[in-house]
Simulated assay, not measured.
Amino acid sequence: MSRPTLKDIARRAGVSISTVSYALNDKSTLPLAEATKNRIRTIAHELGYVPNGLARSLQARSNRTIGVLLNKPLTTPRYAEIAQGLSVGLARRGFHLALLDGESADRCIDDARGGLLDGLVFIGHDDLEVPHELAVDIAGHGIPFVALDCGPARAPHVWSSVDFDYAEGVRLLVQSLVLDGVTQIVHLRPDVTSRADRTRVDTLEALARQNAIEVMAISTGITDETLARLDREPRRSLEYTTELIGRLDAALDQVTQTSTTAIVCSWGVDAEPAYFWTMQNAPHMRVAALAGGSLDPRLWPRLTYSRLPLAAAGEACAGLIIDASTSRDSPTRVLLTPTLDSGAADPLAALD
């Protein structure tokens, strides 16, 4: 059975095809008798008419689809949560998400210019800026665009952006540790060229001086090169975890650990091996991370996360990119604050 068309509705209603089109278009401003409009819509419903979405997209040069450029594995929880937030935010407003390879910028630009994509969202990570060629094309062609976790644009007011307030996340965590009487921090941190980690280190050291806290830095052994290798070969993560525990053993072997000592991890993924080490060697020590990890603080005592609002960041990007694609409002920068997630002193109490 063939799909009903505007011509079929017009024949049944005894009107022209253009009149049917006007009656079915909610945005039409052409004066049309309400009785005529209702009769045409009733016939369309009886015939099972469904608008041709592709034809409408081509006519309006809109496909109600946003392209999301990501050059990190979606298997990483951080990016999966952001993508989920984007998907939910777009769907809430009737848009779709197209996940694109972050290296395919040229093709994405062509799709946006041709109307297959209504805008682009670039998901960065820490120190990664919007690639120069992509930035030039976005500005040159006036393509609706939003950048996530890339820091302020070099040329302000070019596109909207969403970022995390990494410094505030450190402040929240240190304040919590100070209230718990912590006087010594073992800072477990990577050796990467990361804007986020530079901010975290600088803020942590400044707050430690203000609060008379001793800081001992331990490298996780992660560099930009080893991080890229782990992205390509996630099975090596077990090797990394084993090596990290060994680094903690070697560094803390000669250090007196007390209940006023806390291990603070820059990355949430390091909290689990750090917690495992404390359980084996110093169960009285606190473990904290400047990003969310896999352990649930409600079930593990003396564990605290400063969680990045990843899903909220995705939803914020969704709102900004739809605004940019529909109303061309002035670009906006959204700065999201992490939240503190702290475990109970007695994990069994959380189950009561």
Rank of each mutant, 00 (worst) to 15 (best):
T226M: 00
Q59T: 13
R12C: 07
S176G: 03
Q280G: 05
R113K: 15
Q210M: 09
E243S: 03
P283E: 07
L310G: 12
G181I: 01
D26R: 14
D341H: 09
R236D: 09
A349D: 15
R247G: 01
I245D: 08
V334S: 07
W300N: 15
S306K: 10
R3Q: 14
R195H: 05
L227K: 05
C317P: 01
E46Y: 07
G314S: 01
V255C: 14
F145Q: 05
N281H: 14
V68E: 11
Q184A: 14
A318D: 00
V186M: 02
A33L: 14
I245Y: 06
L238I: 14
D249G: 09
L148S: 02
G114Y: 04
T42Y: 13
P234T: 05
V186L: 03
A212I: 07
N25L: 02
L335P: 12
C108L: 04
V287R: 05
R11P: 03
A291H: 08
A135C: 08
V334I: 15
R56L: 13
F145E: 04
Q254G: 10
A311M: 15
A35I: 13
L86I: 08
A288M: 10
Q84N: 07
P131M: 08
G94V: 03
G14C: 03
L120C: 07
I109Y: 04
D163F: 09
D341V: 01
D165K: 06
R39E: 09
L70A: 14
V146Y: 02
H45K: 15
L340Q: 07
L308R: 09
I43A: 10
V146C: 06
D106I: 06
A313M: 15
C317S: 00
T223C: 00
H45A: 15
G85F: 15
L177K: 03
L90C: 12
A289M: 02
E129C: 08
A271V: 03
L32Y: 11
T19W: 06
W277F: 01
E233Y: 09
D346Q: 12
V269R: 12
A271T: 10
A23C: 04
